[in-house]
Simulated assay, not measured.
Amino acid sequence: MELIISLLSGAVGGNIAGALLKKYSMGTLWNSIIGILGGGLGAQLLGMLNIDISGIVGNIASSGVGGAVLLAIVGLIKGATAKS
């Protein structure tokens, strides 16, 4: 159940980041896919670091931030390779 919440929160975080950072947005589908990956990775990373995210609210927040961060990173990489 926590994994599903992480993936959904990541998708939402990716889409919110795409809406706020138009320069890095890749469209709704790709924002969702990258957000899902970021949400899953963010939740796993915090788990491996033994950081207590205190329940569902912490899980949603960390996954949403993970999705947004990964979208920004991918957007930066895409922008840098497009200029080359």
Rank of each mutant, 00 (worst) to 15 (best):
A43K: 13
I34S: 01
A17P: 03
V12N: 01
G67M: 11
G18F: 04
G58V: 03
I36H: 01
K78C: 05
G66R: 07
G75K: 06
G39P: 10
L70V: 05
G55W: 05
K78N: 14
L46F: 10
N31V: 06
A68E: 00
G27L: 11
S6I: 00
G18N: 12
M1S: 07
I36A: 09
S9L: 00
M26P: 04
G13D: 02
N15S: 14
N50A: 11
G67E: 01
I73M: 14
I34E: 02
G40N: 10
I60H: 08
S54D: 14
L49S: 09
E2A: 15
S62H: 08
V57Y: 13
A43F: 09
G55H: 03
V57K: 11
S63W: 05
M1A: 15
G64H: 07
G14N: 07
I77H: 04
K22Q: 14
L29G: 05
N50W: 12
S62A: 13
Q44F: 14
V12P: 02
G38M: 07
V69L: 07
L71D: 03
I36Y: 09
Y24D: 10
G40F: 03
M1N: 08
I73K: 11
I73Q: 09
I36R: 05
M1D: 09
G27M: 06
S25L: 03
S54R: 10
V69F: 13
L20D: 08
A43I: 07
L76E: 10
G67R: 00
S63P: 08
L20V: 14
V57A: 15
V74Y: 12
A68F: 10
N50Q: 13
M48Q: 14
L46C: 05
I16F: 10
V12S: 07
L70E: 00
A43W: 15
A80I: 11
I33N: 00
K78R: 05
A61Y: 02
L29R: 11
L8K: 05
S84P: 09
S63Q: 02
M26L: 12
V57S: 12
G58P: 12
S6H: 09
N15W: 03
Y24V: 13
L71Y: 04
I77P: 03
Y24L: 07
I34F: 05
N59Y: 03
I56K: 14
S25M: 04
K22F: 08
S84Q: 12
I73A: 15
D52P: 08
S9R: 02
L46Q: 09
